[in-house]
Design a protein around this nucleic acid. Structure first.
Length: 403
DNA sequence: CGAGATTCATGTGAAGTATACCTTTAGGCTTAA
DNA sequence: AAGCCTAAAGGTATACTTCACATGAATCTCGTA
């Protein structure tokens, strides 16, 4: 049996590899944003008028994940905030991530969310959407101020609920007497704005900023900078940062991923009582990140979604040997047969069809619509997660569903 | 033999329903003048 | 009479169901070479 007392003693006295772990976390906002000078200057220029209490142009920012959009915007708006406070200018900045399921993924919930950040209590349901808009207007118009609304991952919201919301938001200045509102939209989808209503597009993207992917060298710089703040010196194996940035550059220059990789690798090294982070830890970290991400997604799905997913897993493992594809009909049959034992009311096939589409969107499965000619039309489904994770997820699902 | 019709299994859009929650309003009760 | 509480009435957003029609390539049909 392990001597816990000794273990914890050792744990405390042991030197940590980290000096300041927060510098590697995705919420961290550095003092300087590296390799984004041009974007920072442009955006600062566009937003600067708020400090004279003038309304700036609406801004639309796009670029792939991990290209620094969110950090840059947060960095700049934070500066604006402090300067505004110092100079007694009334500027209010609201940040909302639109993709959060059940938080800000519909018109009602988004407006409610924004209103809440103005200190208004809004019930989750029951109020007319117009009423929520009214509360929202009043909250903003209470005093003269400039309001910046940052809508992160706005493409997700529009894809789900249409572009009317943005249309409404860009027009609210006409309704306000005292305040002015500017919208900053952030999108991961590069072609997103092409599918917008032209009116919406022109009003949202009065200004457009593109964030190109980082190259391997730039990511290296970023990692160096951050790891200097985060680690005690000499804790990183030679060449680790190079390797780490190479990993990330492989994935379209995703800096967030690189930082996460480094952090998790270090956490693993620390747990293994190593004195430095080694390259082998990167591989372990890559696995762990992927695993954690998927487990998190699966865990937070509603029960019905979990059961559908469970059925897909079951079919996938039983079909693996026979090299047979999975179709909607099979999934639905199995799903329905499992419903009673989990105490769930079975949904209609129509709904399950949508559920499968959503699971596809989440990347947990790959589903594509195919026509089998004489034998009808269906979705051909395959698993979108590494096989090694399947048993663990199976357990997770069965536990969660009480199977 | 090949062009066009047929067919199947389910995709997909629109409209309707159930649920859970909201505000308003009318009625009943209490209380203080 | 005024104030307060309660319950019913009337309303909404969301998740889901119902209904109806759309899809699209393998297969069938049938006229033609």
């Amino acid at each position: 049996m392990m001597d816990l007392g000794k273990y914890f003693e050792d744990y405390i006295t042991k030197e940590s590899l980290f000096k300041n772990k927060t510098a590697l976390q995705s919420t961290f906002i550095p003092k300087e944003i590296m390799h984004r000078e041009e974007q920072v200057n442009q955006i600062a220029g566009i937003l600067a008028p708020v400090l004279r209490e003038e309304c700036p142009s609406n801004l639309f920012v796009y670029g792939k994940t991990g290209t620094g959009k969110t950090v840059t915007i947060k960095h700049i708006t934070e500066h604006i905030n402090t300067t505004a406070k110092k100079r007694k200018k009334s500027v209010k900045i609201v940040y909302v991530n639109c993709k959060l399921k059940r938080i800000a993924d519909t018109e009602y919930r988004l407006i409610a969310m924004i209103s809440r950040s103005f200190g208004k209590e809004i019930p989750v349901t029951g109020l007319p959407t117009d009423e929520v808009y009214n509360i929202f207007y009043k909250a903003i118009d209470l005093k003269k101020q400039i309001v910046l609304i940052i809508l992160d991952e706005i493409d997700q919201l529009v894809k789900k609920t249409g572009d009317e919301i943005i249309y409404n938001l860009t027009r609210i200045n006409g309704e306000l007497k005292n305040s002015k509102v500017a919208i900053i939209g952030i999108s991961n989808d590069l072609v997103f704005s092409n599918n917008l209503d032209p009116r919406v597009k022109s009003s949202l993207s009065e200004e457009e900023i593109i964030f190109p992917p980082y190259n391997a060298l730039q990511i290296q710089d970023i990692l160096k900078e951050r790891s200097e703040a985060a680690f005690k010196s000499g804790c990183l194996e030679e060449g680790l940062i190079q390797k780490c940035s190479a990993y990330a550059a492989r994935e379209h220059g995703d800096a967030r991923r690189a930082l996460e990789l480094l952090r998790v690798a270090a956490e693993i090294a620390e747990r293994e009582s190593e004195t430095s982070v080694k390259i082998k830890h990167l591989d372990l970290a890559e696995e762990k990140i992927e695993k954690d991400r998927i487990v998190e997604i699966v865990k937070t799905q509603p029960k019905q979604f979990q059961l559908v997913l469970h059925s897909i897993f079951k079919l996938s493992s039983s079909n693996k040997t026979r090299n047979k594809c999975i179709f909607t009909g099979d999934i639905y049959e199995l799903y329905k047969s499992k419903c009673p034992s989990t105490g769930l009311r079975s949904l209609t096939q129509r709904r399950v069809s949508d559920v499968i589409a959503e699971l596809d969107m989440l990347g947990l499965i790959n589903a594509r619509v195919i026509s089998k000619g004489r034998f009808g039309r269906t979705r051909e489904v395959s698993l979108g997660i590494p096989e090694s994770l399947q048993p663990q997820l199976m357990n997770l699902l069965e536990e969660s569903l009480g199977l």
